[in-house]
Amino acid sequence: MELVLFIVFGLLALIGAFGVLISQKPVHSALFLLLNFVMLGFLYLVLGAQFLAASQLIVYAGAIVVLFLFVIMLIGSDTVGDFVAKGRTLSRYLSIILGVLFLAGVGYAVGARAFPPAAGAPDFGTTEAAGKVLFTQFLVPFELVSILLLVAMIGAIVLAHGVWPAPSRRPRE
């Protein structure tokens, strides 16, 4: 049963990843990215991480993909056909060769060592358990991340604001 779920969700995640790679329009790439993120969230559920599955759906599928779509709509998709850009044949083939080499290396490393059966119970990543660990053992990183989010928010506002100080607004005549 778990194997069937893994194969279905994994295949759909791979389709999403391929779609991001080969879509001509950025909007299609963003939608395939959404498919990839949602399927990874389901895989987290299969892996017994309910809390992470929920936050994956909310943060990645909810916030990040919507932000991507927002920016794509705002600036318009002006670069059609960047996949077939001239003078890029060398880097294209080189990247595919390097990717295959990387996969072979990881496959060898994973296949060479035998994993014992997983130690975690099927539902050990509940919200209760994750919250307990998050607010005791990992309290300091948690607070630091909140500061990071604040700094990122200020940075995004400053970047998106344009000229600084802001020109005083005059009533139009």
Binding site: A17, L21, N36, T79, L103
Partner: peptide, 16 residues
């Protein structure tokens, strides 16, 4: 690893 590789290829191949 496969998804990571597809991401690497995307970074190297795409121009957008």
């Amino acid at each position: 690893a496969i998804i990571f590789t597809l991401g690497v290829i995307g970074v190297l191949v795409r121009r957008n």
